[in-house]
Design a protein around this nucleic acid. Structure first.
Lengths: 195, 195, 195, 195
DNA sequence: AATGAATGAGCATTCATTCAT
DNA sequence: TATGAATGAATGCTCATTCAT
């Protein structure tokens, strides 16, 4: 009798996590531009007060959501690298194309979140370290397979593909993506480092 | 003696142009997210009513401003190409790096506008053709100097550099940009097309 | 060559008339509440400036439109009376029911305009004489056929039927209207005047 | 000592009620046409945000106010009927005239609210059931004293008297109202039902 | 005479944030 | 700890009216 209404409460960490997840979904759907406390509360199935209780400001909410996205992306890359400790250039190209096309999971659109993150960081210095980290994990992962310049070039190209991917009226096709990645990643004997 | 109260000019075309230009500046400064009719009116030195009289909706204002930015970019590329009808890979790389670093003119930040355009287009289908055009003019210009795959790869890399450029806590340096462009643009004898 | 562009202009009276007619239509469609200069200009196929050029204020426009409606109504009643110089009570009832059901012509909804007129007059003293005239022409017409008290009662009942007619989810049916009119108009031997 | 700054009451139900009451007063004074959130907030002595917090849209506010007016009217009629379970025709006529002249209470003008309700319902389908209810309670009350046709006729006549009452430059006098009601209500031996 | 441009006031509504409970 | 109530500051947009041309 006494412990009935107490269910599911008293787990602030879980609620905070759920709010960040809901915020991620809202950003993917409506953008940082369209994010409101109300939209998050609604998406999370929580009362409005919960959003401001656990996150002092809207920017905190955005930061938490984007951090979550970056964490997930980092974990994804880590797993990905563990699963494929060695890849030749061609295999790498194919798998990167898969990643870009399939996004990371079915719930969140990595394309969108990456672009939102970078643009949000432009106006919000507090997000810059997060953007840096996104860049770094991408670069580091690629660096595992290719030389430094190639990794930087591939990371830039992938960001560009993502950005154009969200905006174009006809998304890039797999062959187009593969062609770009191949041009960037295939070792170039004419360059010193690129062995 | 000539400057009376000076209200009500009577040159609608010039006012429309001035409003679009002001909107560009506001987007560069505060982003599409921070764009308001009042900010535009203020930036243009016009009354609030002017913004809504000449542009039915805020999206119309955004579209006009971004179209203007794309038009200017297209013109810039056209001039650029006319000024340099022939360039070898190394010269192209250097000049592209200059463009990315110096932006296009002193008033507007091309980096920012490009990223804002792409992200705005994600939520505003009406802007997609504009995003397509941005992609196309970039690609076409590069295509003049390099093969198709290289042009596509360089365009993607440049978009990525722009996007990361606006967000990172430390912007990319010229040597870093040159290294990326060199990796992408230097002809790769190992690839068939890349002559 | 000289008299081509001059066509259709220079007939202010006709333009004023057309604007009043357009205003009537807008009131019938959207109510006095929804009336705007722009809506009138659009309905009349004239430029916005025409509405304020010929009518100093919005209230003038409203007054002109309602006066036109009352004039038309008065003319209609005059014709109606001329067409039926004598009617017994039963015929009168049937014809009044027809009027209430068919409205006055196909373009304008008399039900609506009457109610709009009365309510507009409540907040606009300038319209009161018009409301008085509407009441008077109704009363006078009825008075031609019945005694004074019956005419007043029938006029009130008809206004009530109109008012309820515009608002109810199911409009009054003809039998219901006839029943009401019969109760009001059929001579009542129990009353002195009502011979 | 008890009355501190007193901000933020914490009695939402009371505030909602107070807002609806204030809206009623604004409608009586300025009409649905002149109703604004600001006018309501001002009338209620509450901040602007209160009006939109408790009522999602202006139409919701209008609906709440008119529902309140109808509820009050229904209660008034119920009491009225309870107070006068039996009345002969002449007494009924006199009392109805009193009602029409004195309105229902000192604060709100029943004449105006009824007309506003009917006309508002014309453009707002959501209000139609309310208009129906107004008609129904009027009819049902009259039906308690007279036959069906007489009740319908008297209800229509009373609506008409109300409508004309708000608009005419000289309101109907008591003798005029009594004459109309007498003509409608006095049993007519010439009609079958009208016993 | 006629009209499109121009504007300032105002409006419904949204929303981040604060706070009483 | 948690939350619904509360609010004041915007915001996009409308519009009556004025006026230059």
């Amino acid at each position: 009798m006494t412990d009935k209404p107490a269910r599911r409460r008293r787990d602030p960490a879980a609620r905070i996590e759920a709010l960040a997840a809901a915020t991620e979904r809202v950003i993917a759907t409506k953008g940082v531009e369209g994010l409101t406390h109300r939209a998050v509360a609604n998406e999370a199935g929580m009362p409005l007060g919960a959003t401001t209780y656990h996150f002092a400001t809207k920017d905190d909410l955005i930061a938490a959501a984007l951090k979550r996205a970056v964490d997930r992306f980092a974990q994804y890359l880590k797993d990905w690298r563990a699963a494929h400790p060695r890849m030749d250039a061609e295999e790498l190209i194919e798998r990167l194309a898969d990643s870009l096309l399939h996004s990371i999971d079915d719930e969140h659109d990595q394309y969108v979140l990456e672009s939102e993150l970078y643009l949000a960081a432009l106006r919000r210095p507090a997000l810059r370290p997060l953007a840096d980290r996104y860049t770094a994990v991408s670069y580091d992962t690629l660096r595992h397979y290719v030389d430094a310049d190639t990794a930087a070039a591939a990371a830039a190209a992938m960001s560009g593909i993502s950005l154009q991917g969200v905006a174009r009226s006809t998304p890039l096709t797999r062959p187009e993506i593969v062609a770009i990645l191949r041009r960037v990643i295939t070792p170039n004997p004419a360059l010193p480092d690129s062995a």
